[in-house]
């Protein structure tokens, strides 16, 4: 892709196409901006705010911000990393993210982004909410403890699978993921393990049953290299057959 328009990020010139977001242009140029609710294969959503950058003195959400010339983007100063870390710490205390016993540990984007922002402690007091699991589906498990309400499964089930299995219900701290079925159980919905929505969760909230800790420690996605080098869990899940829909050029 050739373009002569650029903006500057951390002192580097980043080329962009008309209509492209700061996030997409940066990722295309090989520059990592942390993100959780964003998946380059799908339209941006702008809900987690982890992709916050400083643009000409303003904090902006890079996954939804259209790139423009003369932008000065700060993606790596301590001040920006502090902001992201605080957001992550809030995510960690709001749910129950017990990494040591989680099957997704080592493959989890939330954990990997937390490492990337040098998060060493939760800092805030844990909420320790009482949340359960939904084991009703024959092939897939749902763990409420781990859901960060990024909305990816909601969007993908609606836009790609055309099933609208998931939705976010409630407001503020009471928000939770719900399933579109008469009983409210995942097992009674149209969800299938082969759905695209079954592969997009950046954390370990939607996982296939009976798999557990099949991947040995040392061979998990983030065991040897950081997320800024290896990229998203989602990219790994999609590595065989990338599904690209929508996006900034749609």
């Amino acid at each position: 892709m050739s373009t002569d328009k650029t903006f500057r990020m951390d002192g580097k010139a980043i080329p962009f196409e008309a209509g492209e977001t700061v996030m997409d242009a940066a990722l295309r140029a090989g520059e990592y901006i942390p993100h959780l609710c964003h998946n380059p294969n799908f339209p941006p959503h702008g809900s987690c705010r982890v992709c916050v950058v400083d643009v000409n003195g303003k904090h902006m959400c890079s996954c939804t911000l259209e790139a423009a010339e003369h932008m000065e983007v700060d993606n790596s100063s301590d001040a920006i990393i502090d902001k992201r870390r605080t957001l992550l710490q809030m995510l960690f205390v709001e749910g129950n993210h017990t990494c040591p016993a989680c099957e997704k540990s080592g493959d989890c984007q939330l954990q990997a982004v937390a490492y990337h922002t040098r998060m060493l402690s939760p800092h805030f007091t844990h909420f320790f909410p009482k949340r359960s699991i939904d084991p009703s589906h024959p092939d897939m498990m749902f763990y409420y403890n781990r859901c960060i309400l990024c909305g990816l499964c909601v969007r993908v089930s609606r836009d790609v699978d055309k099933k609208s299995v998931f939705a976010i219900s409630g407001r503020g701290i009471d928000s939770r993921l719900v399933f579109n079925s008469p009983s409210g159980k995942l097992g009674d919905s149209d969800f299938s393990a082969t759905d695209e929505a079954a592969k997009v969760c950046p954390v370990g909230a939607i996982l296939p049953k009976h798999v557990g800790y099949e991947t040995p420690i040392g061979q998990r996605l983030y065991d040897n290299k950081p997320i800024s080098v290896v990229g998203d869990t989602i990219a790994k899940n999609h590595s065989e057959k990338p599904v690209v829909i929508g996006g900034p050029h749609e």
Binding site: P100, A101, E103, I133, P135, M141, K209, H210, G212, Y213
Partner: peptide, 14 residues
């Protein structure tokens, strides 16, 4: 109780 069986070998180590 209430956890999936495939987690057991890792959970109970604790």
């Amino acid at each position: 109780q209430g956890r999936p069986y495939w987690e057991l070998p890792v959970l109970v180590q604790r």
